[in-house]
């Protein structure tokens, strides 16, 4: 895998975790619960965006690059 792509993917995953952590912290007092929520939300968030990116990439390759 190209190094730049790997760096961007890692940065994206990191941002998913930070955004999810901040959203989980909002109006939730229980810190262990925040961490569980963060794991769940960041996984779903990253999976959703990843699927969206893969679908977009596939469509572009299929309709534009062929």
């Amino acid at each position: 895998m190209e190094r730049s792509l790997l760096v961007h993917c890692l940065a994206f995953l990191y941002l998913c975790i930070v955004v999810s952590l901040s959203l989980s912290c909002y109006r939730e007092e229980n810190v262990p619960r925040i961490l569980r929520e963060t794991a769940r939300r960041s996984f779903k968030f990253a999976a959703f965006i990843g699927l969206l990116a893969a679908a977009t990439y596939g469509l572009v390759r299929f309709f534009v690059d062929r």
């Binding site: 930070v18 952590l21 901040s22 810190v31």
Partner: peptide, 13 residues
């Protein structure tokens, strides 16, 4: 706890 989480996440970012 929440203070440490917030400070850590945002300052590291």
């Amino acid at each position: 706890g929440k203070a440490a989480l917030g400070a850590g996440a945002l300052l590291i970012t």
